[in-house]
Design a protein around this nucleic acid. Structure first.
Lengths: 224, 224
DNA sequence: AAAATAAGATTGTCAGACAATGTTGTCAAG
DNA sequence: CTTGACAACATTGTCTGACAATCTTATTTT
């Protein structure tokens, strides 16, 4: 018998509000830098101000919004320098995660990555950028889950969330998706071969290229 | 004329409450795993429940406390595996920070590190573990401030806070302080010589040794 | 002793209030 | 016409009080 997580996470109003807000921000419902008004959010999310403010604290901790006393919340606006730093650290951490995953990933983990990659390919064929992002997410989640470090997993999750914006735009860049697929395939290949160093190299290289693409995306957007 | 940060940070009740709680936890006023009662904290901190709960969200985001719905807050209890992961990631990030600092640190930064190290020596002579911790903190803060990556700085700050407990105990370990001083001196030497690789090596090695000491400390404490 | 139950404690959530602070628009002076 | 002062308005910071949902503990029953 398989142990499926029975512990049902109690979904509090607050959690839901935070989740909804998070999604809204990640999906670009609010524009970076845009100010948010508590009363307004309360109405839209249908929660009390007390609960909303707790939710805001959560998002602020995730750096998805900025909370300045007496000025209220605003959607976090990231500078390129900051984004670049994130990509850099991400490269390090993801490289390390890949390195570790190479010797720790079990069959189930590998299969999950393979299936995510297959889905990515389908998404590329269909030119569905959102699905591509989702598939990449699953691909990495599988790897991180099997890398043996909850801390790395946790840090990466936080960092990646902060550059979702750029990732989404990057995927829409012509040619980037196919390029990305090649890189992921190389990473997965290294993992399957238990080639830790190769996996690290593939992972860091992938992030490096993603960073380059993000750079042009960032500039383009700035122009507009 | 020197630019001193004029921007006075508005100190809200909530910030103060969070700060006080944070200090209390880091200083071991509460024991790991101990449950906290909101009403109780409200009285002690003299804030309303609404404000307190926001403060709790902040600490939860910092992983200093755990918040389980319907069960309230409890002081975070860390397992050795988790602590080891933190040390490992910390080694990576601090190594990278040192590497970058080697070519970016200015004279003022170096002087700050030197002065922190001097203070550390005095603390060692006096066998004042708390002062040692504080001096190490200043030492690293100076390095991180000059490493050119706010992200690394931010991540390290969060990680280190989660192992304060172990660090404090480790410093009290006979011989560890002096050993630590030697390692820091080596790191600073590399930075002064702009030897990036040497700096990285020194930094990671320092963390590695700290991790080993922490390990024995953790076990000892477990026995009691 | 184990299970069921009741009483008490604690949290989740809301509504409403008010002072402090920030924002905006108006108007007069330079 | 810009600049500054000032009033009017909007928004946030914080508190109080409340009540149902949930957890914990003590008590009773089997």
């Amino acid at each position: 018998m398989r142990e499926v997580d029975l512990k049902v996470i109690p979904r509090t109003v607050l959690d839901l509000a935070a989740q909804n807000l998070r999604n809204a921000i990640l999906n670009g419902v609010f524009r970076p830098g845009e100010r948010m008004v508590e009363a307004d959010l309360c109405q839209r999310l249908d929660v009390s101000r007390a609960s909303l403010r707790e939710a805001l604290r959560i998002l602020a901790a995730e750096k998805l919004i900025t909370l300045v006393p007496n000025r209220g919340p605003s959607v976090a606006a990231i500078s390129w320098d900051e984004a670049e730093e994130i990509y850099h650290v991400r490269a390090m951490l993801e490289g390390e995660a890949a390195f570790r995953a190479a010797t720790r990933l079990d069959t189930a983990g590998l299969r999950a990555m393979q299936s995510a990659l297959a889905e990515f390919d389908r998404a590329v064929a269909r030119r569905d950028a959102d699905l591509q992002i989702a598939a990449t997410g699953r691909f990495y989640d599988a790897m991180l889950a099997g890398c043996g470090s909850g801390i790395i997993q946790e840090l990466l999750h936080g960092l990646v969330a902060r550059i979702t914006f750029l990732r989404a735009r990057s995927m829409r860049r012509p040619g980037r998706a196919r390029e990305s697929a090649t890189e992921l395939r190389r990473l997965l290949g290294a993992l399957e071969a238990c080639d830790a160093r190769g996996a690290r190299a593939a992972a860091t290289e992938h992030v490096r290229l993603a960073c380059e693409t993000a750079r042009t995306v960032f500039d383009d957007q700035r122009a507009a």
